[in-house]
Structures are given as structure tokens and as C-alpha cells.
Simulated scan of single mutants.
Amino acid sequence: MTKKMFASDNNSGIHPLILEAISKANDGHAPAYGDDSFTSNVAIKFREHFGEDSDVLFVFNGTGANVIALKAMVRSHQAIICTEGAHIHADEGGAAEGFIGGKLLTVPTEDGKLTVSQIEQQLVHIGSQHRSQPKAISISQCTELGTVYTIDEIKQLTSFAHANGLLVHMDGARISNAAAFLGCSLKEMTTDAGIDMLSFGGTKNGMMIGEAVVCLRKELAPELKYIRKQSMQLGSKMRFISVQFESLFSDNLWLENAIHANNMALQLAEGLQKIPGIALTQPVQSNAVFASIPVEHIHQLQKSYGFAIWNIEKNEIRLVTSFDTTQEDVNLFLSTTQKAFE
């Protein structure tokens, strides 16, 4: 086994219970394309977490979940408001605009969060036939900077959006980490907070492959299965994705994994703050640590560890912990970092 990295929670392995569930689902045959009992059973679990009126469908990856959710909300002459650092803008190869045909209207932000005033500034050209018409906003929970919207902040955004005829999408690739930080249920910060469409992440939280599109606005649901097929995200052997979510929701494994990853990030951050010359650049509210480190030490650390250089100008790096990050992993990285400064 290679040394644990801190580059991404995508680098982690598969949780043993999920791997076991996949193996059990491999016994015999089952109907294809989601007509199996695993898929119907886990749909019930999703309704338990998001409400009886919620609909769910499973896809291969986060980009697929995002573009399917957004295409159900936005037509090609319309626009989606998001931050400059939003995954749909910065890390999906133009998939949203390419697949939907609409436009992303981006705004700068210091902490990864959208605000009502920023959204309001993007609405001044509503009604102009020369401009893409804003129809949706997309927020990330957790944000790409590891910060977390409070429930009140989400409600402020959704209330303003709905009052102005906008729909709200949440990119929840790390939504479990946000719930762990806030100490709330999934429903409290989505359905109850006014979110219309959610991309629910599984891969970053212990699954092998698979994400979910959770529709929380009934009138948007009928088109989703056709959009999924057209976007090449319909899995034939879907039971192997569904059974992972079933395992994730059993005995609150989703929350246990997220709490552990968050705790490892906090311990990592606390250790880094004790080293002169290192400064945290964002509050640690999830499983990501953002820190400024002198460039010569960054290069030295990269000889031993993989991690992301987030902002070259600020000498800012990102370290991400996972469900399988151990105290020993954290201590070893801190020890290596301390030696690099000696």
C-alpha cells in the first residue's frame, strides 16, 4: 500500500463495507437500468433523508450529476449564476455550457460563497433580448474553498432566488461533510431550506463510483431520466451504484465517514498552525485545509507528498483528508512539514 496523500478525497480507497456490499450484489443476475431491487430500496432511503416528494436517479460522476440537474432547470438562452471557483465553472471542462447551451455568469468571492447582493447584480439585464437570461443559481456545499453555508445563508439565497423567478441547484459533492460540520440533517439544509435540485456526492465519501441527482421540485423530475440517457450517464448494471448508496445510508455510514474526515482536517490544521511561517487562509469547516506556505517549503514537501497548489501567487496549498485518513497519517505529514522548516 502506498503512502496516503492529501491531494484529494478522490484518491482514497473504497470503504470496506461498501466493497462488501458490491460483492454481495454480484451474486446472480438482476434487471438492468435501475429496475432492480437495490435501486428501488435505496430510493426509499433517499426519500427518508430528503422527503417523500423527492426523486432520485443515479449517475457515474459529479460532472454528470451537475449537468443533468442544471439542464433540467435551464434552457439554452438562459444563464446560471455561480462563483468563479465553482466546480461547474473551473473544473468540468465547460461541460455545463457545452451540454446545456446556456451561459455561466460568475462572480468573485473570497470564501467560496455566493451572496444575495452578488446575485442581485446579475439580474439588471433581465428582459433584454441581447443577454442570456438568469434562470438558476448554483452553490457548492461544501464550497470549493472548504467553507460551509449555514442553513440561514441557504434560506436567504433560495428565498431571494424564488422571489425573482430563479431556481437553486446545490453541488453537494461533499454535502456529507457539510452536514457533519453543521450538525444538521440532510433535509434541513436542502429540502427545508428551499433547494430545488441537488447533486449528492458519494465517491468522495467512501464509494467506488457513483453520484445521485436528487430532485426536490416535483415539476422538474419528469425530464430527468431522458436527460440522463442523452448525457450517457445511464448505467446498465445500476445495482452496483445503487447498492453503494444503500450501504452508505445504513447505520449512518455517510455521516460517520464525514465526521472522521472533518476531524482529521481539524487536527491537521491545528498542527500546521503551530509551525512558524504557515498560515491558514480559510476556516476549516470540512475536510479541506487551505494554508499559505513559503514556496521553497512547498517544493520540498512535494517530494514526499501529493497535494494541490491552489493559488501560486499566494503560495496557497490545499490538503484534503478522507474517511480513511488516520491519526498516524496526519502526524507523519506534520512531522515531515516540521522537518522541512528546520
Score class of each variant (00 low, 15 high):
Asp91Cys: 14
Gly85Thr: 12
Ala86Asp: 07
Gln78Ile: 11
Phe99Lys: 09
Thr106Cys: 10
Thr83Gln: 12
Gly98Asn: 15
Thr109Phe: 07
Met73Val: 04
Pro108Arg: 01
Lys71Tyr: 13
Gly85Pro: 10
Ile68Val: 14
Ala95Cys: 01
Thr115Trp: 13
Ser76His: 15
Leu105Ser: 04
Asp111Tyr: 01
Ala90Gly: 10
Ala72Pro: 04
Ala86Cys: 08
Gly112Glu: 03
Leu105Ile: 08
Gly101Ile: 15
Glu84Gln: 11
Glu120Pro: 05
Lys103Leu: 02
Thr109Ala: 14
Pro108His: 04
Val116Gln: 06
Ala72Gln: 08
Pro108Asn: 09
Thr115Pro: 06
Thr106Met: 10
Ile88Ala: 09
Ile68Gly: 12
Gln118Phe: 08
Ala79Asn: 09
Lys113Thr: 00
Leu114Asp: 00
Gln118His: 07
Ile119Thr: 05
Asp111Thr: 05
Leu105Thr: 00
Gly112Leu: 07
Asp111Arg: 07
Lys113Ile: 01
Leu104Asp: 09
Phe99Ser: 05
Gly98Glu: 07
Ala79Arg: 01
Ile81Gln: 06
Met73Lys: 14
Gln78Asn: 10
Asp111Lys: 02
Asp111Cys: 02
Lys113Pro: 01
Phe99Thr: 09
Ile88Leu: 15
Gly112Ser: 03
Ser76Leu: 11
Ile100Arg: 06
Thr106Phe: 06
Gly85His: 13
Gly102Ala: 00
Leu105Asn: 01
Thr109Asn: 06
Thr109Val: 08
Glu97Lys: 14
Leu70Ala: 09
Ser117Pro: 00
Pro108Val: 05
